[in-house]
Amino acid sequence: MVVSPASALCPPSWAGIVVLGDAAIVTAPTESAALVLRRALASVPVDSLTRPETVRAVLPVSDVLGPASLAYLSSADFRPARPQGAVEHLTSGHPDFQGLLRSAAPEDVAESGMEEITSPAFVVRAGADVVAAAGYRAWPAETAHVCVLTHPRWRGRRLARQTSSAAVAHALAAGLLPQWRARPPASRRVAHSLGFRELGSQLSVRLKEDPFDGARG
């Protein structure tokens, strides 16, 4: 349990729970929230910490995000996508890449994480327009958090696999460990097709205010 108001595991003022194998970390926005979480979660088995129904049963939760699966890939397990067309490398500030971000729904862009990539953007075009892109954000411990976005009109054409395969190859060549975070089944299928193995899960929870006040008292 860690008190971390600026935790990247969850939205601001929320609590973040990550389970990897038989270990877990919980970040709390305040000391009082940590006290509530510690008392409530102490008796919950690790493999149940990211199950919304379990957490709701022991905590006063007003909202949840997730769970999302966490999958990882070694170079030995990597199954690159078969080439289906040209994949270009663009800078994250390139106007054509930014055009994709502007044309997609804001919630899709936020879910993808593409606005935060630190790698090049690996893109596929339809004519002059970028219709799919992938990249990764460098995280601590030499981890590459893979991000993927396909325009809604171009989904179902294996473009996510094509662009993410290029991003993963770039991360592995840089000596990084690719990480794939996904909630939608379609995204999880793309990760599995590339060789990712699901090793953990993530859940974010927003606690009701009343228990915080009681904890302070």
Rank of each mutant, 00 (worst) to 15 (best):
R157Y: 02
A133D: 07
R158F: 01
L20G: 03
L73Q: 00
S165G: 02
G66Y: 02
A132Y: 04
T91S: 15
A191E: 00
P52S: 10
R39Y: 10
D22L: 13
P184M: 04
A182W: 02
L149N: 02
K208F: 13
R181H: 11
P120F: 14
L159V: 03
L177C: 15
R189H: 12
P83Q: 05
R197M: 11
P52A: 11
D210N: 14
V123L: 10
L73S: 02
A68C: 13
L37G: 05
V168S: 08
Q162I: 03
H170M: 00
P52Y: 09
A141N: 15
R39L: 14
R38Y: 09
R158M: 08
A167L: 01
L176Y: 10
A182P: 03
S43Q: 15
P184A: 09
L100S: 05
A6M: 09
F122Q: 04
P45A: 06
S193C: 00
F78V: 07
L177G: 11
L59R: 08
G93T: 11
I117R: 04
R153T: 12
I117T: 05
E142P: 00
V146N: 06
D22V: 12
D63F: 04
H192F: 12
W139K: 04
R82S: 14
E116K: 14
P185K: 07
G195Y: 00
Q98E: 15
A133N: 03
A144K: 03
L207G: 03
D210L: 15
P5I: 06
D63M: 10
V109I: 10
P67C: 09
S103H: 09
R216T: 12
S48Y: 13
E116H: 15
L176Q: 13
P185I: 06
L37H: 02
D47K: 14
T150Q: 06
F196W: 00
W14P: 06
G16F: 01
L194A: 00
A138T: 14
E53H: 13
T118D: 12
D210A: 15
R39T: 15
A132I: 02
R137S: 09
P152M: 07
L203E: 02
W14D: 07
P12M: 05
V2S: 14
D129T: 15
V124T: 11
G135R: 02
G113D: 07
D77K: 11
R183C: 09
A86Y: 11
H151D: 06
A76T: 13
S112P: 00
F78R: 01
Q179F: 00
P140R: 04
V44Y: 07
L100K: 06
A144D: 01
G21A: 09
R189L: 12
L20E: 12
A24R: 00
V168H: 01
S193Q: 02
V19Q: 04
G16L: 00
L194C: 01
V109N: 10
A33C: 13
T27L: 07
S204K: 06
V124C: 08
V131M: 05
A34E: 10
D108G: 06
T163N: 01
V64W: 08
P67V: 01
G217W: 14
E116A: 15
G217N: 14
H94K: 10
A105I: 07
S4Q: 13
I25D: 13
G93Q: 11
A34M: 09
A40E: 03
P29M: 02
A215P: 00
S103M: 10
D63G: 09
A110N: 11
S165A: 03
